[in-house]
Simulated scan of single mutants.
Amino acid sequence: MIRAVHHVALSTADLPRLQAFYCDLLGFREIARASWNGDQAKIDRVMDLPETAATTVMLELGPLCVELFQFAAPTQPPKVDGERPVHKHGITHLCFDVDDVDAEYHRLSAAGVRFHTPPQDFGVAKATYGRDPDGNVFELQQLTGGFHA
């Protein structure tokens, strides 16, 4: 039986930059860090990749963890210009529940975070999508009544 979602993992070319975003701006804290250099056959088998080398940090905020990876090997394909649209198959966004979506939107906007739009009122929730420094989409959501998940 599945009990809960433990973490979501993101791969990045700049671990310190992405960690600063999630810790300094969103309030996560580092709870674990690991590195390996092509010598972890078990990890390679789990990832189905050859001779991986990476650093990973696990960040925690309440019951959610976000794991960040920076791979040194295998080499990365060239970066595709532009941001991945949210309708593409795969993970579309991370959603963070907040007490005051307008205040968080203004605080993060002032820190240089780019949002698609100011918070929109949907009756049961106010929400907006923003982008982390790597272009991953996150949602800020304030539940205003009727819907709880």
Rank of each mutant, 00 (worst) to 15 (best):
I2M: 11
A4H: 10
H6N: 14
H6T: 07
H6Y: 08
V8K: 06
S11E: 15
L15E: 12
L15V: 08
L18P: 04
Q19F: 01
A20L: 05
F21Q: 08
Y22V: 04
C23Q: 14
F28G: 01
R29W: 02
R29D: 08
I31L: 07
S35P: 01
N37P: 00
G38T: 05
I43A: 15
I43H: 05
D44H: 01
M47T: 07
L49D: 00
P50N: 06
T52M: 04
T52K: 09
T55L: 02
T55H: 02
T56H: 00
L59P: 02
L61A: 10
E67F: 12
L68Y: 08
Q70E: 15
A72L: 13
K79M: 11
V80G: 01
D81W: 13
E83G: 05
P85Y: 02
I91R: 09
T92K: 02
T92S: 13
H93E: 04
L94H: 07
C95I: 02
C95P: 01
D97K: 13
D99C: 03
A103P: 02
H106Q: 14
R107W: 10
R107K: 09
V113W: 04
V113D: 10
F115N: 09
H116L: 14
T117Y: 00
T117N: 14
P119S: 05
Q120I: 15
G123T: 04
V124G: 07
A127C: 15
R131Y: 12
R131E: 10
D132Q: 08
P133A: 08
D134R: 00
G135K: 03
N136M: 05
V137C: 04
G146C: 11
H148V: 13
